[in-house]
Design a protein around this nucleic acid. Structure first.
Lengths: 334, 334
DNA sequence: CTGTTAGCGCCTTCAA
DNA sequence: TTGAAGGCGCTAACAG
């Protein structure tokens, strides 16, 4: 009997087994934007890898614009079709978060912390602070931050990164007046950034860029007009995009594989837990004992990766680095 | 009644409906390698977009190594879990193709033509021929081809591209002796390519590179050693990677969105056709009339996209371009 | 045209 | 330990 099954390479129908067991063996991933973008692609790959190792499938829910966003939260297509949902998208509104609660299935937020919900994220602000600190320690004082305009109403955790810049600059005694923010309209808008950079009264010597994609575009635009990196300007990115290594871009690495693995593992575990009541549960009585520990909130560390786009500024800084012996100026190490 | 359903944002269970109807509303996509790679990501995005417009879901089957490859074809997990399969991976062996036939579900090959099967692909060879022709018309004679070593037993349609180079060079009266092939070990191995390039007795003036990813790596390596593009060497890529525009890489554009859309549309249509017999059909009698037309085989055109990495060679070519009046040498147009 | 019912394929429970 | 049966939620066929 088994031999025959083997012979015909019988595969169980997930539909039928799901109907019988009440679980679909599927984890949903809510993403926004292009699936082929560096972040989405990497996250998807990591999630797929760890889920498939557990025999689970990955279901994608992609939201590209306001209409799709509205419809997703109106119809909640994930309901009863996945066992858990990983939210790896823009920042949700409170109303949207509540709506997802209605799903009565485990939720895992990725790069987005929600009170009372499981999440796994990096610390965007700490990451940027590390990056800016690195530039300051190299001797830079005129450090600009390069950000990207918010797109169509979608806010990402990356939008917080500028706060890390502000905080670290302020901590170094370089408050608002010394801070310079350059703004790109899109991630490929390096030209505009260089234009703003070159228009500034006192040329920044280093650029902390919100994302690698934008940083690469900025570097390319620099080179086009003859600005060398790091000789004329240091450029530091954020993400560790696949092509950062190709172009020698120093960056704050965001460990997407770890992020994805943690989120997927968590989602898988939670999904394997007790089945949610099929009938909408009545509001929990106020007397119910609170669960001892809240849902897991994991933060994975970022890491500064030095390549060849950052170095000490060409001129000796006017302000000494601070404590420690004053070092002799030398050629920045390659 | 309907109001109540609306209220609770009821969503049908795909599992149950699939069990009842015999169709899962799901299309499988077989891919290999990293889901976040430019090609996989773009294809997935396009497929997802057109499928979801038809209310279909996308199921990913990713094969990363020989073990996974073997297991996929042994267990055929797609069986009974998707309504059609899009094969967007390495070139399948004849045995593997036959195995997929066992699934008795519609198959659509993407960038891979299989006799008797539906497929949608670009013409890799014609694409490269166009690219090489462009370089020859610019006046280049010492045109090298840059390829990537086969990885672990996975052969991709891109491996044929070198044939386009050979053919076009030969057609231009530049046979084997004039042809130069540089080989990279990986897509990020530009250094090695430039090393080989600079070691060659007579320096090629143009490089036709198998893929944009590799071309970007080659350009970066060129710049690192002071070789300018296109002044010192023209570089032409293949794909139209998202970052090609950022770095001004001229390229043969492969319209992935179209590819994906066609494949998904085809798969959706075929999946909507008659249900396959659930009992394995007996071998068709030899007398059965052949269906009039074979399955659809669509070829989508590639397109030369000129940016700033290709130009006329610095020196006047030794051999005149051929027919037509000899033009005066001038600065290559930017 | 609306209301009822059988059954899709699998899992789990209960009986043998 | 092995075998038979009910039901998961939905659809389609059928009866009213």
């Amino acid at each position: 009997v088994l031999a025959a099954a083997e012979e015909l390479s019988f595969a169980v129908s997930r539909s039928a087994s799901s109907l019988a067991t009440g679980r679909s063996g599927r984890i949903g991933v809510l993403v926004s934007g292009h699936l082929g973008s560096w972040f989405n692609g990497s996250i998807l790959d990591g999630i797929y890898a760890t889920l498939s190792a557990d025999g689970l499938e990955t279901s994608i829910y992609r939201i590209n614009d306001a209409t799709e966003r509205e419809r997703f939260f109106a119809t909640l297509p994930a309901r009863r079709n996945v066992d858990a949902l990983i939210v790896a998208s823009f920042a949700l509104t409170a109303a949207e978060q509540e709506r997802l609660e209605d799903l009565s299935m485990p939720l895992v937020y990725l790069n987005q912390t929600v009170p009372g919900a499981a999440s796994v994220s990096i610390d965007d602000i700490a990451g940027v602070r590390t990056g800016v600190r690195h530039l300051l320690h190299l001797g830079h004082r005129r450090v600009a931050f390069v950000r990207r305009e918010d797109r169509t109403g979608f806010v990402y955790s990356a939008a917080q990164r500028i706060e890390g810049y502000r905080a670290e600059m302020a901590a170094a005694g370089l408050p608002a007046a010394h801070q310079v923010v350059l703004t790109a309209r899109s991630s490929t808008d390096g030209e505009e950034v260089v234009a703003q950079h070159l228009s500034h009264e006192t040329l920044p010597t280093a650029l902390m860029v919100e994302s690698d994609e934008l940083a690469l575009s900025v570097m390319a635009a620099c080179w086009r007009v003859g600005l060398r990196t790091p000789e004329d300007v240091s450029v530091l990115g954020f993400d560790d995009h696949a092509l950062a290594v190709t172009f020698g871009l120093s960056t704050i690495a965001q460990p997407v594989e770890v992020l994805a693995q943690e989120a997927a593992g968590l989602a898988g575990t939670l999904a394997a837990g007790p089945l949610p009541d099929s009938v909408p549960a009545p509001p929990a009585p106020a007397t119910a004992a609170q669960p001892a520990a809240g849902p897991p909130v994991v933060t994975v560390p970022t890491r500064l990766v030095l390549r060849t786009s950052t170095a000490r500024p060409a001129q000796e800084p006017e302000i000494p680095t601070g404590s420690g012996p004053r070092r002799k100026a030398g050629r920045p190490p390659r």
